[in-house]
Amino acid sequence: MAKKVKSIVITGYGTNCEVEMAHACRLAGSEVVDIVHVSEILCGKVRLDDYHFLNLPGGFLDGDYLGSAKAATIRFLHARISGSKERLFDQLSRFIAEGKLILGVCNGFQLQVKLGLLPALGGELGNQTVTLTFNDSGRFEDRWVYLKVNEHSPCIFTRGLKGLYLPVRHGEGKFLPRDEKILEEIKNKNLIALQYSEQSFQNPTMTYPANPNGSVSAIAGICDENGRIFGLMPHPEAYLHRTNHPRWTRENLPEEGMGLAIFRNAISFIREELLS
């Protein structure tokens, strides 16, 4: 294996899940994993072009003070790389055009939808068509949820999975589309990769707390039409080992946590499709 899978985990300005996200990339077999502060990209020291897998971890970008990830959206859209005419968004667009993978979790997912990276219907980047807003409960909550995987989704990250059990930790996770038409298109194209479900992973649910935020169509995660950009509210990087599971002391669980499969799928896809 001559070529190396290179993953970048972006941090700074309130991101806080970068360490476990990087750990997940490493466990999944990525040979290079760099945690990079946004400022290092903005000052031109690090370029997204040098990586295959971009991770946007959870946190509270700029405190979510203007709504989750809102202020950060402005930074990603308008900030320029010093010493060049390029904007951060230009690098991001090029990264996507090259068919590389992007995973956004929680605050990272909020950033993706507000930047218009997801669902990016028809491949149109930069046009926001859906949002993630305040939970119906009006509260931030940390609780574990069951997630049904859409087997027909083009999503690369959820390939071969039936269901997942992961924690959500958010106050603004309710998925809402701009209108019915957008929702229909997302459904028809099977872009809904994950839905909050009952324990059996069979049926999506609108019932609190199994659906922790009141998301339309129980949507917990969506992908773009190529399946290469994926965002989800639950935290796969929070379940990498069985001791992360809330009931590990009472259930027989495999050593490896369920969340790691998402990262394994990404790394093997890169190895097979982008490196060979």
Partner: peptide, 19 residues
């Protein structure tokens, strides 16, 4: 529940536990 007790990924015995 309104406090994030799992960020940083190293949670082993959580404040809430059991079946």
């Amino acid at each position: 529940r309104q406090y994030d007790h799992e960020v940083q990924g190293g949670s082993v015995v959580k404040p809430l536990t059991g079946a």
